[in-house]
Simulated assay, not measured.
Amino acid sequence: MGRIRAAFYDPEGARWGIPTWWWRGAPAGYATRRQLRAAGLRPGGQPVAAQLMWAGVGGTRVAYLYRLDLAKPKRTATPAQLRAVRAALRARRTCPTCGVVRSYCIPRSLGECVDCAYPQEVAA
């Protein structure tokens, strides 16, 4: 075990407060939020069970780990929620001046579509 890895090895949690391993050194049964999401799971309200630590750019980096056996399945959106999201995204693409639904989100800095904001450039 290298010197850097040894600095982050604390499986009992005596030094860091919770069990700690170096990057890619955690035992099976733990996962990060991103790994849980990829597996179709979520932490489900459980506290952080352990952590990974490594020397990174700007100092020591940390990734929190959750127990796989306590993870719950991801929740899926209801049809009503999906309709609401589609309506909100459509509203962001609708120009308030001309009422045309654009293929891009209307810039908040302009408050209207590019064609309405710069009509002289469209005519040219």
Score class of each variant (00 low, 15 high):
R67F: 05
T94W: 00
M53H: 03
I4H: 03
A71T: 13
R92C: 15
L36Y: 01
A7W: 03
C98N: 14
I106V: 09
A77N: 05
A38Q: 10
G111P: 06
L41S: 02
R61N: 11
S109L: 11
A77R: 07
A63M: 10
T32C: 01
T76N: 03
S103H: 09
W23L: 15
V114H: 01
R24I: 15
Q81V: 05
G40Y: 04
G40C: 07
T20Y: 01
P79N: 10
G29F: 04
E112D: 10
R34T: 15
G56S: 10
M1R: 07
A123Y: 04
R61C: 13
P19A: 11
V62Y: 01
R75P: 01
A84E: 14
A87P: 04
L36H: 00
R108H: 07
Q46A: 05
D10A: 14
E112M: 12
W16H: 09
W16E: 12
D10F: 03
F8G: 02
P79D: 12
A7D: 09
Q120P: 02
T94G: 01
P43R: 09
A77H: 03
G17Q: 06
R83W: 03
G58S: 15
R42H: 03
G45I: 14
E121H: 03
R92Q: 15
T94F: 03
P107K: 14
K72V: 07
I18L: 00
L65I: 06
C116K: 02
F8S: 06
Q120W: 11
Y104V: 12
R24N: 13
G25I: 08
G40W: 05
R61W: 08
L110F: 14
R3F: 04
P96Q: 14
A50S: 09
A31Q: 02
A38Y: 04
W22F: 14
L89N: 14
T97C: 14
A71F: 06
A55E: 13
R90E: 15
R93D: 08
K72Q: 08
G40P: 02
A6C: 06
G45W: 06
V122E: 03
G111R: 15
V57A: 08
A84H: 04
R34V: 11
G99D: 06
W23N: 15
